[in-house]
Simulated assay, not measured.
Amino acid sequence: MTHILVVGGAGYIGSHMVKHLGALGCRVTTLDNLSGGFRDAVLHGAFIHGDLADKALLAQLFSSQRFDAVMHFASHIQVGESVLDPGKYYENNLVNTLNLLNAMRVARVHRFIFSSTAAIFGEPQSATIGEAHPKQPINPYGRSKLMVEQALADYDHAYGIKSVCLRYFNAAGADPEGQLGERHEPETHLIPLVLQAASGRRSHISVFGRDYDTPDGTCIRDYVHIADLCQAHWLALQTLMQGADSQAYNLGNGNGFSVQEVIEVARQVTGCKITVVDSPRRAGDPARLVAHSAAATQALGWRPQHAALETLVEHAWRWETRAR
C-alpha cells in the first residue's frame, strides 16, 4: 500500500487531496499545524499536529515511518500579506520547505509533489501562459514559490529527490459530495466571496475595475476545480513512481471566465440577489490570466472533468449552504 505524507492536509486543497488518496486506497498521514486548516477536514488516515519549523519532529516522523512520497501544500498564499510581511512568507514557504526536503533526504524519500502557483510568472506576456513563459514574480509570495522550484532542481541534481511542481492558476469549487470546501479566514477568492454575498454572510461583492481590455471590461481568470487538481497530483505521483524525471506543469481550465461572468452564473445557480459594488482597479491586477496546460495533458493524460463554470459554482454553493 502506497504511504503518502500530505503536509498541509487540513487546508483547502490538502484536505481534498487526503480524501482523494483515501478513496484510491492509499495509506495517508497528514502533518499540519492548523494555522489555516481544520482538523475535522482530514477525512482519512492519521493526523499529526506539527510544524515544518520543528526539525526534531520531522526527524522523528521520518525515522519512525516509511513514506513512498510527500505532497506539500503547507504554504502561506495571500499576495497582499506577502508584500506587507515578506519575512513570514520566506520563512514558511522557503525555509520550512527546505526543512522538509532535508528530512526527506536523510530518510531517503525521493518523491515530492509541490503545490506551486502561477504567481511565479509575474505579469503575463502572452494570452495564455505555458511552462516556457518568463518567470518574473512581482511579489514575495511568487518569489518564495519560485525559489522552492529552483531549490528542487538542485536537490534533484545533488540528492536524487525527484519532484513535480504543479502551478495552479485559481483553485475553485468544492468536493462534489459536499463534505469539503473553502474555509479561508479571511477569504480572498472570488467564487466563495460571491457566494457569501448570495447567502447573506457578506453584504456585497466588490468588482475592482470595469475598464479592462476584455469583452465585458472585468478581469478574466482561469478557475480549476479542486477535484481536477487532486487528480493531477495523483497522475503526477504515478509518473514519479514509474521513474520519471522531475517536471513542472501549469494547471488550468484552459478557459477564462470574467468577474462579471462569475457573478451572473452565481445568480443563476443560487437564485439569490447579489449586490455588486464597483470599485477602482487594484494595483497589479492583469486583465487576463489563463493557463496553457497542454504539457500536463500530454505527459500526465490530465484533462479537467469539471470545467464548466456552472459546475464549479454549484459545488461551491452546496458547500456554502451546507457549512453554515
Rank of each mutant, 00 (worst) to 15 (best):
S115P: 04
Q268F: 08
H110L: 10
H204T: 07
D222M: 09
F67I: 11
H16C: 06
R221A: 07
L309H: 05
L5V: 11
A266R: 04
G173S: 06
F38P: 00
L312G: 03
H233M: 12
S246F: 05
A127V: 12
G36T: 15
G14N: 09
P137I: 13
R27G: 08
T97C: 08
D213A: 12
D54W: 07
K135F: 11
L98W: 08
E185Y: 10
Y90V: 10
L98T: 09
V70Q: 03
A119W: 05
S82C: 08
D68W: 06
T128S: 11
T218A: 00
D156L: 10
G173M: 04
M147A: 15
E187V: 11
L195S: 04
N170C: 15
M147V: 10
K135R: 15
D51C: 06
Y223Q: 00
D154L: 15
R202V: 04
G130S: 13
L180A: 02
E91G: 06
A41C: 11
G252F: 00
G22S: 08
C26R: 10
T30R: 00
E187D: 08
G243P: 00
S116G: 12
T297D: 05
V28R: 09
G11V: 07
I220A: 02
R39G: 05
D32A: 10
G217W: 00
L31V: 14
D245F: 07
G181C: 08
S116D: 09
D175L: 08
V164Q: 02
N170A: 14
I48M: 05
A74L: 06
N255T: 07
D68L: 02
V109T: 14
A41F: 07
G160A: 05
Q298S: 15
I113T: 01
E261N: 00
T297Q: 15
T97M: 07
F112D: 04
A153F: 11
A158W: 12
M241D: 02
L251T: 03
E91P: 00
